[in-house]
Write a protein that binds this DNA or RNA. Structure first.
Length: 1078
RNA sequence: GCUCAGAUGGUGGAACUGGUAGACACGCAGGACUUAAAAUCCUGUUCCCGUAAACGGAGUGCGGGUUCGAUUCCCGCUCUGAGUACCA
């Protein structure tokens, strides 16, 4: 039979599923290998051809490793909490779990038909309570931990309490908030429970802090940075303001140094590591305190006290602290700049300068982050009127504010050295401040010179020294006088760990006396409650504020199913038209609409009047149903939630007109506040945290869950973790560089600190797959004399001769850039009568590489390609496209070639009439050579992730064997194994046709490469003259270089080129090349 | 601006440690089979000159350098993509 890819692929996909072929074993004597793909978010659009690229690569690798004798873990699952499903829920009222479920099903179907060797028995979904139970559990461990800098690891908060109880705060070196208290044992013991908890919160690895967020009042929600465009929401275009909010944060900064050091130990792409290094942003320098000179407007004692709360020490003196990486330039400081938002600004501003400063602050506030960013040229700032003292020479230094200094970085203050820093230089020039040269070779005529070469001048005790000695001497002096010290600063901030959203993991926390407490571990998972709509409450609380009770969404969906059947029945019995009329009927009294099939917690109400202060349920089925049990259950529910309800009989509904129904509804006496919120508090007393966890929570530890996905008692058993340890190969996009990949490393280090994980780093080797871009096609509409578009289209090669405008055309009706004119005419109605100006009888389209998107008509769906060519062709073609790491435009032009290759491969096993025929004869030398060449090549290619080159090599091998008319089992059986990771379906089929038992190819041993088959006796030496190859001369490989030289020079062709002249020099590289210099 | 990656035929790309540039595939052109088309097979295909062919010249973004020899190493530049941003 000809190559019937459809039957073959269906058959083997079914076989793998039925036989759990790829189930990984947690108890194996084989060495382990863990291949992981980055967690996909199941979006509504399904897979496009870009998504599977990495999955195919990792699948090839996983299958190859199985053939190499490894016990391979290759799982897949879904990062299924996320904004798109929630957005859809807001628009349609459909529960996000249903949307998510539907999307996952699409994904699964698409993944299945590509033939991946995933172990689906370990599938995880972050939105499933079985999973997020452990996300919450890890959150609890973080809450119960603090970072001990002395031990360089996280420890239980109990150890901190024990320390406080026996030694007070002395001797604690921790990563904590800045405002921790200093206390003795007795002072600690004297603190109230509340005060103690408040203090401990400053140490916990997850803690509450006030942070600035993008608040959009119109949408009633917090927006991510990329949802804000120029100060307005991307969705709807409503104004966005900066608002302070209490938010959960993760103390990732505690791990900054370890996150940085760890990068040197892992095999990741250098650009990715560089991105993380930049993000962590370590800078080594010094912090320096500049004591305040009292401003003339403040009376001596008063002024000092006023400023002391921020920068004060025990003596009551005050100062501004700066961080600098160039403490050696301190004698060149001619002014200080602090951020306009800096806490000291108000205190420092003198009466004379107040107007200036206020104006400047007002101006800064108007500027968005973007404006501040874009405008690097304008120099702006304002003088506070106050001065500080240079701690090393006592110079009086003016304090300015300027928006180029950010409150959030370092101390929010910089010492300005105009001679060494270009920004300071421009500032000094603009405001006419002194520029002091401090290094002898410095050239500061036109710009700053940040050199570290040369000797210091104008610099007191470091005059004449070099950079290193000067820095050391300055730091030593500052430490001696207590006004500075060496310091390491990190750019990275603590990560905000909360979203004012519904579709995420609930935070397992309740509040008592305004302080957060963890819920009991036995009560995990804290399940996401049902709510009536997915918007913030009327008082601006997150959507969870609408919850009346925390219930299990899974039971909800069961209930929903039951009600679905129920609904079918009564819809037949009462008039459809009436239901339709009732739906969206307006109640004049309440100014609201009746909502059909509204959801309250986990039951569905026929109709609902939904107001901020009350709800009224309308039950039209009460008298009709024979299932009294269910009817009673509904009534009980409504009572339980104190929702009043009205019941109509069917007769009433049929007889009454709409107005009468509305009247009856409005006659119902509604008492406000009936709908109370007391039933869903923690233990009926305390309020729950209402924000949910961010998108990265669930993905920060998921690779451990795959190790032991069904475990009910732990996130993964100690034994499973001990066996699988870490991910050996991780494939995914570089867009996760500073998000997921940093947070995952952080959580992994934490899990190691608390003794749960073994390895310091979770992902040993990481490969970035390149993005697949879209390749758009264009047609060119002819523009007539009056500038209007016509219905005539000009082929791309001729557009220079006409006036045209380009229009995107669906790439699916274009083949090799030739437009299918008939399909084009039916594509859009207005093109039905289109006319064409052709070249060589064809319409050639223009091409551009752009992002793949629906609006550009350049989306290619894998389903269509699989339908046409099969999964094996798609898999090989995606690899054939080019190096995995490189971004490239998608282009189906070459897919035919890959399909032809697979057919040609199939033909090796068949005669002219498509009968399966293989011979048992001994293979020839040439056949063995072809085989061993490919065995070696593919092995090398896979190990260095060069999948595109091995596809080419397969083609070469099959071309060679076709030329040799080889159908020998000894060759083909091995070839099938080598091809199997790339094209598993065809390989399985041929493997079983060869008489092997079904499915065993997955673990068949990879053929051993035998170099003796590739040994050559002769080599055709390329002979070049001055580096230009002129001829080839075949000589034995055993010949020594001197003999090669002699033989080459004696050759007639060489003599001809030499033309009687003697060569100056002859270079012979054995087995490589001969170069004759003339 | 900074950091990183990249630039090779009409197209995707190959050349792994400096050693025959353009493998493999697409496309295109010509041919075979066919009444014809599709499918399949064969031949050619970097450019220029010449032109049946041999042969000659140029050529891996641009300009230099190191070397017997450079797509590969070094210096300077241009362009493209990604990340990041007044980071002290």
């Amino acid at each position: 039979m000809d190559y019937q890819f459809k039957d073959i692929e269906k058959k083997w996909q079914q076989f793998w599923a039925d036989n759990n072929t790829f189930k990984a074993d947690n108890n194996s004597s084989k060495p382990k290998y863990y291949v992981l793909d980055m967690f996909p978010y199941p979006s509504g659009a399904g897979l496009h051809v870009g998504h599977p690229l990495g999955y195919i690569a990792s699948d090839i690798f996983a299958r190859y490793k199985r053939n190499k004798g490894f016990n391979v873990l290759h799982p897949m699952g879904y990062d299924s909490f996320g904004l798109p499903a929630e957005q859809y829920a807001i628009q349609t009222g459909q529960h996000p779990s249903l949307t998510t479920e539907a999307n996952i099903n699409t994904y699964r179907r698409q993944l299945d038909q590509i033939g991946f060797s995933f172990d689906w028995s370990r599938e995880v979904r972050t939105s499933s309570p079985d999973y997020y139970k452990w996300t919450q559990w890890i959150f609890m461990q973080l809450f119960n931990s603090w970072y001990n800098k002395a031990a360089e690891k996280a420890e239980s908060i109990d150890s901190l309490v024990a320390h406080f109880e026996t030694k007070g705060s002395a001797g604690i070196v921790a990563v904590s908030d800045e405002d921790t208290l200093t206390f003795t044992v007795d002072e600690w013991k004297a603190l109230s429970e509340k005060a103690k908890q408040e203090e401990l919160l400053k140490y916990r690895l997850t803690y509450l802090r006030e942070s600035t967020v993008n608040w959009c009042a119109a949408l009633g929600t917090v927006l991510a940075n990329d949802e804000v465009k120029d100060g307005f929401s991307e969705r709807g275009g409503y104004p966005v303001e900066q608002k302070k909010m209490m938010q959960w944060s993760m103390r990732i900064t505690a791990y900054a140094e370890r996150l940085l050091q760890g990068l040197d130990t892992i095999d990741w792409p250098e650009p990715l590591k560089e991105m993380q290094r930049n993000w962590i942003g370590k800078s080594v320098g010094a912090s320096v305190k500049f004591p305040l000179s009292l401003s003339p407007t403040l009376s001596e004692g008063e002024g000092a006290e006023k400023v002391s709360p921020i920068g004060g020490d025990s003596e009551g003196a005050s100062y501004i602290e700066v961080f600098t990486t160039r403490v050696d330039t301190i004698f060149g400081v001619s002014f200080l700049v602090i951020a306009p938002e800096h806490e000291l600004v108000a205190e420092l501003t003198t009466v004379e300068q107040k107007a200036d400063i206020d104006a400047y602050i007002a101006q800064t506030k108007k500027k968005s982050e973007l404006d501040r960013m874009a405008d690097t040229k304008t120099v702006s700032g304002a003088f506070t009127g106050s001065y500080v003292t240079n701690p090393l020479n006592g110079d009086k230094i003016p304090v300015w504010i300027a928006d180029y200094v950010l409150a959030g970085y370092g101390t929010g203050a910089v010492m300005a050295v105009p001679s060494g820093d270009q920004r300071d230089y421009l500032f000094a020039k603009h405001f006419d401040l002194p520029i002091i040269p401090i290094i002898d070779i410095q050239n500061i005529e036109t710009e700053a010179d940040p050199t570290k070469e040369g000797k210091y001048i104008n610099s007191d005790f470091i005059n004449g020294l070099g950079y290193k000695e000067a820095t050391a001497a300055t730091v030593a002096k500052l430490e001696e006088i207590g006004l500075g010290k060496a310091k390491v600063n990190f750019r990275m901030r603590d990560a905000i760990f909360g979203r004012q959203r519904y579709w995420g993991e609930p935070v397992p926390v309740y509040f008592r006396n305004e302080l957060p407490y963890l819920i009991d571990e036995k009560e995990l998972p804290l399940e996401l409650p049902e709510i009536d709509k997915y918007l913030p409450t009327e008082t601006g609380e997150p959507p969870l504020g609408r919850a009346t009770k925390w219930v299990n969404p899974l039971t909800h969906s069961k209930f929903d199913y039951a009600l679905n059947n129920y609904r079918d029945r009564y819809y037949k019995e009462i008039s459809e038209a009436l239901v339709f009329k009732l739906n969206n009927a307006l109640s004049p009294k309440y100014g609201t609409y009746l909502k059909k099939e509204a959801l309250i917690n986990d039951i569905i109400i026929d109709f609902l009047i939904d107001m901020p202060t009350f709800k009224l349920a309308i039950d039209i089925t009460y008298y009709k149903t024979k299932d009294t049990r269910r009817a009673n259950a509904r009534r009980k529910y409504l009572k339980y939630y104190r929702i009043p309800y009205l019941q109509f009989t069917e007769d009433e509904l049929v007889k009454l007109d709409l107005d009468s129904i509305i009247k009856k509804i409005e006659r119902f006496e509604i008492r406000p506040q009936l709908f109370s919120a007391t039933d869903w508090n923690y233990h009926h007393q305390f309020e729950y945290e209402l924000s949910t966890m961010p998108g990265w929570a669930g993905s920060s530890w998921y690779w451990y869950r795959y190790m032991d996905a069904d475990n009910n008692t732990e996130f993964a058993s100690e034994k499973a973790i001990a066996y699988w340890k870490d991910v050996d190969l991780y494939i995914g996009g570089s867009e996760h560089a500073t998000g997921h990949l940093l947070y995952s490393r952080f959580w992994n280090k934490f899990l190691k600190d608390i003794g749960k994980a073994i390895e310091e780093e979770p992902f040993k080797k990481l490969i970035n797959q390149g993005m697949i871009q879209g390749r758009s096609n264009f047609v060119y509409r002819l523009i007539d004399g009056e500038g209007r578009g016509t219905n005539t289209f000009v082929s791309h090669g001729l557009i220079k001769e006409y006036k045209t405008s380009p229009i995107h055309v669906d790439v699916n009706i274009v083949e090799n850039d030739v437009l299918n004119i008939n399909k084009f005419k039916t594509w859009r109605e207005d093109f039905a009568d289109a006319e064409f100006i052709l070249e060589n009888g064809k319409y050639i389209c223009g091409v551009e590489v752009e992002k793949m998107s629906k609006s550009k008509f350049n989306v290619v769906n894998p389903d269509d390609l699989i339908e046409r060519y099969g999964a094996d062709t798609l898999r090989m073609y995606e690899m054939f496209l080019g190096p995995l790491e490189q971004s490239k435009p998608w282009n189906t032009n070459g897919i035919e070639g890959v399909f032809k290759f697979l057919r040609k491969f199939w033909r090796l096993f068949h005669d002219a009439n498509w009968n399966f025929v293989v011979s048992n004869d001994a293979p020839s030398k040439a056949e063995l050579k072809a085989l061993h060449k490919i065995i070696k090549k593919v092995e090398e290619d896979i190990e260095r992730f060069s999948f595109n080159t091995s596809v080419s090599s397969f083609m070469i091998a099959v071309n060679e064997l076709t030329d040799l008319k080889c159908n020998k089992r000894a060759i083909l059986e091995n070839l099938v194994i080598v091809l199997a990771p790339y094209a598993p379906h065809i390989a399985e089929e041929l493997w079983s046709l060869l008489g092997n038992s079904e499915g065993t190819i997955s673990t068949a041993a990879y053929p051993k490469f035998q170099p003796e088959y590739l040994v050559e006796d002769e080599f055709a030496y390329p002979v070049s003259f001055n580096g230009k190859v002129r001829t080839n001369i075949s000589l034995p490989l055993t010949m020594q270089p001197a003999d090669v030289e002699a033989a080459v020079l004696a050759h007639a062709d060489v003599q001809k080129h030499l033309d009687g002249k003697a060569p100056k020099k002859v270079i012979v590289v054995k087995g490589r090349i001969v170069n004759v210099v003339v």
